[in-house]
Amino acid sequence: MTNRTEALPGNNKKLSKRIVARWQLYLLLVLPILYLIVFSYVPMGGLVLAFKKYNAAKGIWGSQWVGLDNFRKFFSSYKSITVIKNTLTISLYSLVISFPIPIIFALLLNAMICDKYRKVIQTVTYIPYFISTVVMVGLVFQVLDSRNGLYGSLYHLMTGMPAANILADGRLFKHIYVWSGVWQTTGYSAIIYIAALTGVDQSLHEAAKIDGANRLQRMMYVDIPAILPTASIMLVLAVGNTMNLGYEKVLLMQNDLNLNYSEVISTYVYKVGLASGITNFSLSTAIGVFNSLVNFVLLTLANWVCKRLNGSGIF
């Protein structure tokens, strides 16, 4: 919004004049704002569905108000505990593994003395990021196939015995999910840290060298403090995404054998809402609202902790 002083009555004429002078800009903004209202804010209004019993004939607003019934229904179903537990397990595991690895990778890459080799590694490790989720999951399935995949072939080559089918074991689901994510995104996630590291003042390194610090010590006491602010913001964002687990990938990796370990809130929302035999729009929306709320609380909490610790957060 404009400054307070400009909104005062005495300045009104000036403001309106300034608005008229910029009419062409507002004209250009008509489509983007229309888009924003229709595709972002109208669906937000649709969230009221969580408190109603959806009736397709009457529409969202005409449907009957049922209060918290949909939420009660979700929490009393046996599924709720499973999906909440799976969501938390997989995302915390994912956070613990895939948050520090890009940082370590960036630090090592920054310390690499052979420039050409560093560039090659960097370029190659970006590539998996461009593989689509569908192909990525197909790739994981193929490579880990116990008969004709890379895993099966290598296992057979080394032990002479047929490999066990690790894709059918539900308990291994979270490992496959998280580590394939590490494989795909480490190079990409490291870019931000590499950018922060190239911004480190070289005189700090020179000074540390004169003081007799070796490269490892310089990494610990020069490089790491330099990327700490970036890292803490990335951590807040990652925590704020805890509940928005990559449902596209989870959905594709699900099968009947691992469903007990792989059903998470976001995929459950999809199944209840659109994919099961008897779809329930209201229940699905309610679960979605619950998910967003938990997420928002986590984000605010992480942001608060981060502000307390180092004085900067994302908002």
């Binding site: 109208v42 669906p43 649709g46 969230l47 569905l49 659109l274 699905s284 929306t285």
Partner: peptide
């Protein structure tokens, strides 16, 4: 808005 409200839209 999430999945369902977007779908209805």
């Amino acid at each position: 808005g999430g999945l369902i409200p977007s779908y209805i839209l």
